[in-house]
Simulated assay, not measured.
Amino acid sequence: MRVEKIKNAILKNKNKDLMGFVGEQFGNNRSVHEIMNHLQTLKKLNDNTLMLGIARMDQIETDYDHSKFLPSLLAITGIMFGIYVKTLDLVLVFILASFLSIALLYIMKKERRMRANAVYFRSLLIQVKEAKKRSNK
């Protein structure tokens, strides 16, 4: 893989596309040889690209961290259902709650993979940066 391809992916791709790229190029579906080649390519990135990549992975990790807003969302949902139980039929409230819960779980499961890829790639970038720093001493 070329250095420019990784650099462009880190700096220009949208978050979803970047995480797809990371999953494809550095995921478990690759052979050990391919992953090692990609790691060597990462080591050729300049320090600015590494810093921007680490910062971008932090941002993506934060964006897809559901633990920050899930408690508030559950509290608001509970209050809404408490109000609806008094005004609507209990069966209708149950159907609505089930639908919302399934939708929320689906979205969280889908985005969890993106967060995991961001954590993984950030770790790789940090280790590459540290290795470059040690080799320059």
Rank of each mutant, 00 (worst) to 15 (best):
M1C: 04
D63G: 05
F121A: 00
R2A: 10
G23Y: 09
L125T: 00
L73G: 11
F26E: 00
N136P: 00
G27W: 06
I102E: 13
N48R: 09
K133S: 15
Y84A: 12
I54Q: 05
M114Q: 05
D47F: 08
R134G: 00
H66T: 05
G23I: 11
N48Q: 14
L73V: 04
F69Q: 03
Q25S: 06
K12Y: 14
T77I: 12
N117V: 06
R115G: 01
G27A: 08
L124R: 03
L73Q: 14
A97C: 06
S135G: 08
F69S: 09
M108D: 12
E4R: 12
G53V: 03
G23T: 08
K68P: 02
R122T: 04
N29W: 06
I79C: 08
L52T: 01
A118D: 05
S101P: 09
E24W: 10
V85S: 07
T62Y: 08
K137R: 15
L11H: 06
E61D: 13
V119C: 03
K109A: 03
M80H: 03
L70G: 10
D47R: 10
L42P: 01
D47S: 08
L70S: 13
L100P: 01
F121L: 02
N15S: 12
F94G: 14
F69N: 10
G82H: 05
L124T: 01
L105Y: 11
F99I: 09
A131Y: 07
K7W: 04
A9C: 07
K12A: 13
